[in-house]
Nucleic acid binder design. Structure first.
Lengths: 226, 226
DNA sequence: CGGAGCTTTGACACGACTCAACGTGGGTGG
DNA sequence: CCACCCACGTTGAGTCGTGTCAAAGCTCCG
């Protein structure tokens, strides 16, 4: 799977989501449409070039020697991965769904690189606050809001600005992101469903039914019944 | 206290720790030697210039609406604070001991800024791993090792490379950094003392007696008895 | 139909939090 | 100079949230 990335420069710059059948590229070996669970690069190995996520989702993660995993970020369309200093990757990156990447030149505009780094830093610091000081329901609510911003589109259902998005991470991925266990994430989602704040269909299609109240829970302003 | 920073440019560039009595500057209003618990800048306010910590220690922190505090980083000599994008501070900064700051020009070398941002990002990601996946004793051990790197000097006591340093943060500060409570931090330090891995004199002079074994605990390779 | 992977749910355990009491050291004012 | 105070630290007892372990359900797909 890694070798699919060996020659990504063959693609023209900014091959933005075309309306032409994207599945055509999946079968073509030259196409940069990666299947789920493709490892883009590995922590500790020689540093790889930078990519922009065009479509899909990439998780960046670190792993402790005994196997404990922590997801650093979930990266959606438009954002960059592989940025950093030093001669080796500080984290691994893998796709969570069918994902299209685009190579970004190492000599990108300094201002763009600066802004991307600043944004990553801000997100990392938000995650620090989440992990250090938020309860499990607050973490799950925060995660859903973040994912809706990255992957969401207004839902058919227009009540109170409901938003729907495809949930790329599994319960286990969410747990590794939020510093929880798979079971705790599942229980929190169940409680959010029972409170009629969210809806999940087909396992991975999530609708935020009341983003405002969800944001209140994420910020710790209101709590969630059992 | 804030006004002490109003005219920091009066100092020449790189006023590195001089051998002349530093207390003289403390009484002088122009001197940038700040007392403990001085707020350098506040989260949410218009963005301030950047500073380099010359001597002492600064904590950067975010606060939730209900008062929960999360320390983002403890910054020792040589490192920068105030870096970032956007028009307002994303976190507050306050001194934890007598601290000397030095103004850094906004138009610093792009390479230097890039490297500083990358380093902050790497540190933030390490904190994410600590908060998301480490136990309380592992967190405290990790913190002590980090502080020894920033503030430590080889101890008189040469056994196994013991390192001594001044502990700027209180137990409460450490708790807000490590996502724990004050009491849990205290209990972990007591256990580390009983295990003869560390020594604490006069409340704030810490010696790591066995950095190797401490690193083992920090990484989760070995555990700590009660 | 059958199996694999993911999810849900329950019972129980345990680590960290909460609440409380007490100890300690440094500073201040009578 | 001492009594007092206040901030910080330590320690204990009990609670609670989250983790652990286990079983069963669901959904997709061969």
């Amino acid at each position: 799977m890694l070798q699919m990335l060996a020659n990504p420069a063959a693609q023209p710059a900014f091959p933005r989501v075309s309306s032409t059948t994207p599945e055509m590229r999946a079968v073509s070996l030259a196409g940069p449409l990666l299947p789920p669970r493709t490892v883009v690069f590995l922590e500790g190995l020689t540093r790889c070039p930078q990519y922009r996520v065009v479509d899909g989702c990439v998780a960046t993660a670190q792993t402790l020697s005994d196997g404990r995993r922590q997801i650093i970020d979930l990266v959606g369309p438009g954002r960059l991965i592989g940025l950093g200093f030093g001669d080796q990757n500080r984290y691994s990156a893998e796709t969570l769904g069918f994902t299209r990447l685009e190579l970004v030149s190492d000599s990108m505009a300094q201002g763009e690189r600066d802004q991307a780094l600043s944004e990553m830093l801000a997100r990392s610091q938000s995650l620090v606050m989440l992990l250090g000081r938020k309860t499990a329901p607050e973490r799950v609510a925060s995660a859903l809001i973040d994912l809706s911003r990255q992957f969401g589109r207004p839902a058919r259902d227009k009540r109170r600005g409901a938003i729907t998005f495809h949930l790329y991470p599994t319960r286990g991925d969410l747990a590794d992101w939020l510093g929880l266990t798979l079971e705790t994430v599942s229980r929190c989602l169940t409680r959010l469903k029972k409170a009629a704040l969210i809806d999940i269909r087909q396992g991975d299609l999530v609708t935020l039914l009341d983003p405002q109240q969800l944001a209140g829970i994420a910020a710790g302003d209101r709590s969630l019944s059992h």
